[in-house]
Amino acid sequence: MESDEELMTRVALGDEAALGLLVERYTEPLQRFLQRWTRNRVDAEDLLQDTWVRIARGAKTFRPNQRFRSWAYRIALNLARDAHRRRTVREAYVANHETAPTRTSEDTIDLRRQVDALPESLRDVLLLRYYAGMTESEMTEVLAIPNGTVKSRLHTAIRRLREGSDHE
């Protein structure tokens, strides 16, 4: 199986089939990540489309020595952050569009709210780790922060959620 980076090198030369393979590999994990990040399905879908548009448009700027996964998630994360900054009436929008939770326990719903309420810096590492299965070094590339910071943010995120869940 060709690596993501090999496929991306082909995409840079205009190979549409290679782009198709990457879309197949990454659309679902990217969508899950964006959905949890934005807390909203409609936003996540738009951002997912925009992410692939950016990837296709920027294919020529992709360097084969970088990791495709880190590159793609960095694009997705930057788009999500920009969209979040642009939104001024976010709370109302979320209230209208948030996916209705399916049959889940109260603890799960509370914890999901706590995840959503985490500071962006902590939420980023948690979601990249869980939905993208990223290693610390990959997160270092995506978030442009040192390895130790990634580790401590992940640890802090878990600790905060645990404390929050213990108090309830």
Binding site: L19, V23, W52, T108
Partner: peptide, 24 residues
Amino acid sequence: ALDDVSRVPALPMRRVQDRATRVL
């Protein structure tokens, strides 16, 4: 709590692919 998002229907792959291909 985190898995709950996985139950959301995935965006049709074809649509994503077509748009990306057009841009490429």
